[in-house]
Amino acid sequence: MRLPFPPYINKIVCIGLGNFIAPDSDEENELLTLSMLRHAAVLTVAETLFKRFGRYIQIIAQDVDYTPDCAMVLSRRGFFIRGRNGAGGFAEIDDKTFVFAPSSNFCLKEIVADIAKPAAMFWSTVLTPEESEKTSRAHQLVTFGNHITSTWNYPIADADTPRVQLLVKEYDVYQFPCTNLFGSVSIYAFRRTSMVNMNQKIGLLNK
């Protein structure tokens, strides 16, 4: 399926894709392999966007777990590393950015919603409050004695807050097949009608 990505995308910002080179070890494990495959997927996305729109796509990445060796390998493959800590990666996000951040373990979507309206996002599927409550509910009942039982909801690190809900209303959503590589994620592409509205607002401001 040919997704209707905005034609003005000029960079991909990757957040939290993981480290794939273990320090002082030649051993491979599942997490390292997942990280390697996720970075490879980013290269595929950049190549696809280049072929479709004929524009160079810059790739920017940030992860607190990057080792120096991992950062060096990524740099050789065309990634621009924006430090292990701080907000360097987030500072690069604007309306021409494709945010690539599946399975985040912190409030990434809330931060992005505060920064800009990216051209596209690839991250965990945004759920309604009802869906979120059901998804985070523990399957095992908690017993308090005297036949009193209750369920509990575990906290969600990258919660779908009202601000996030408001952001994605301006995007077309394409749910990605759930896999061990990315988890339950969706692609969000900025809707064409939203682009027109944004250009009209910019035009009024420039008058």
Rank of each mutant, 00 (worst) to 15 (best):
L166S: 12
A101R: 06
A116V: 06
F106G: 03
K207D: 06
K207F: 03
T67P: 03
I115K: 15
R137H: 01
E27T: 07
Q165N: 14
T143G: 06
G89R: 10
T151S: 13
E170R: 01
S35T: 01
P162H: 01
A189S: 14
D158S: 06
T48S: 05
F53Y: 15
S103Y: 13
P7E: 13
F182V: 05
S75N: 13
I115L: 15
D26M: 06
I202G: 00
H147K: 13
N19I: 02
K134M: 04
S75D: 12
I15L: 15
C178A: 08
M36V: 03
N146W: 11
D94R: 10
N85W: 14
T143P: 02
D63W: 07
S150W: 00
L31Y: 06
Y171H: 14
L205R: 14
P102H: 11
N180P: 02
P129I: 04
G86F: 02
I12P: 01
E28Q: 10
P68Y: 02
F176Q: 13
W123E: 11
A87Q: 15
L74V: 07
S150D: 07
P118F: 09
A71Y: 09
Y8M: 14
Q140P: 00
T44E: 09
R52D: 09
R84L: 10
A91D: 04
S150P: 01
D95K: 12
L37W: 07
I81F: 11
D160V: 05
N146E: 14
I148S: 13
G83H: 13
D65N: 15
G78L: 10
N29G: 02
P177N: 11
R192Y: 03
Y56H: 15
A116W: 02
K169Y: 02
G88P: 05
A138N: 04
S35E: 13
A87I: 04
P129F: 06
S186Y: 08
H147L: 09
L3E: 08
